[in-house]
Design a protein around this nucleic acid. Structure first.
Lengths: 228, 228
DNA sequence: TGGGTGCTTCGGTTATCATCGAACCATGAA
DNA sequence: TTCATGGTTCGATGATAACCGAAGCACCCA
């Protein structure tokens, strides 16, 4: 018949509303149990279990057993990236799940995208580094300069440790609300963690929102200024 | 209930095998008719029509009427990009379709379409001019820039003379074999004539084939380069 | 004006699959 | 062992939607 990758299978996985809700819930980067995801998607555990096994055999999910629980996460950054790009297209087409509620501005300002910072501040972070030549290269393929490494070192981020991990350090991700690139990869994860360690920001429970304290916001602006 | 873009709808669109086949067929950048896509997907034209209207109302497709035909293309580059990223993920997950049959003969290189150049080279001509901003506007409605006029003047084509004719100077046409836009109108005619005057090409008798000499082919490539 | 073609609409059939109740399995605690 | 909890498997049901035949519409050409 035809050659090439089979996107229909992936589409079908994402196409079911219950499964889509679960995947989006996992975009928070947190590992969730079957029961949590069931309530997230508004279905029973039996149904959720069936969906989870399908998603797993399609290679979209990973599960980790821990005691009596089974924790599910997205399989890898690739999956998160594809979901993000789908959300971008849907947003631009005006395909929204519901009326944009009060949480929406907060989501656009700062939220977690799988494991890194997204939204307004995520975009600002990335472009600030580029404008000051702490990053070189294109928006999709870039690297740290020596000045960039020094800057991150000052912030308390051990870049050489990141480089010893298996994941790519420098990776970008397209933001669905801003429609611009923000920082992903091991570096993106490390920076978000560092912000929270420094007390600049914390996660709002049961949501993707990242809440910056006034002090944290100020510190962020100082560290990542943008021209214009 | 939930906030954020609705990826389930997009997923469902892509999730049906017939629709996925159609979308992948359109990834060639070519415009296809409903009948062609039906046979491509192995379904009847009625069913294809239903799918096409769904895809269109989801904002994934655009249609363009020309004569008795309706040519469908992907809505924009965004859609192609998302499909590409899905194909990437599917490929990495080992989700493949099966092999394709043999392709059509090589009449597609260069031929005459009424009075202008069509086929591979015709498409290249048009897109080369657009890529270098010698033409501005959409694929269906465009005009020459000043740089474009100068460029044509250098080639020995008198644009102002063309403008005194009654026919529209700038017109595009959908290519029979490539299914992408190529140059038509008075300008298309004039350019083909000029190529033959310059000795780059000649008509093969009793056929629509335009035969480029080695030298002519080289000159053509130099005058109308394309990225990709 | 009539005939041919490309495409859409309508109706009815069929098949897939999401869903949940109930039973079953596994782990941990008492 | 027994009980409790988290999760999967099984079976039946119901809703959705893909599918095609037939009819209708739009456009082109002679």
């Amino acid at each position: 018949m035809k050659e090439g990758p089979d996107i229909a299978l992936l589409g079908a996985m994402i196409g079911d509303p219950a499964r889509a809700n679960m995947l989006i819930a996992l975009m928070s980067g947190k590992a969730l149990t079957a029961t949590e995801m069931a309530s997230e998607a508004g279905i029973t555990v039996q149904t959720a279990s069936s969906h989870l096994s399908k998603l797993e055999s399609a290679g979209l999910l990973q599960q980790r057993k821990q005691g009596r629980h089974r924790y599910f996460t997205l399989a890898d950054d690739d999956v998160a990236e594809v979901l993000e790009s789908l959300m971008g297209l849907a947003a631009r087409r005006g395909l929204m799940r519901t009326r944009t509620g009060p949480k929406d501005p907060a989501l656009r300002h700062a939220r977690v995208c799988y494991n890194h910072l997204a939204g307004d501040l995520g975009v600002q972070l990335f472009h600030s580094l580029r404008q000051r030549d702490l990053l070189v290269g294109s928006e999709t393929d870039f690297a740290l300069t020596d000045a960039g490494r020094a800057f991150l070192d000052d912030m308390g981020i051990d870049v050489s440790a990141l480089e010893r991990e298996r994941r790519p350090v420098c990776k970008s991700c397209l933001d669905w609300s801003e429609r611009r690139t923000h920082m992903a990869g091991a570096l993106g994860t490390a920076m978000l963690e560092r912000f929270m360690d420094l007390g600049w920001a914390r996660r709002v429970p049961k949501s993707r929102v990242i809440s910056f304290s006034p002090k944290g916001q100020k510190a962020f602006e100082e560290h990542f200024p943008t021209i214009n």
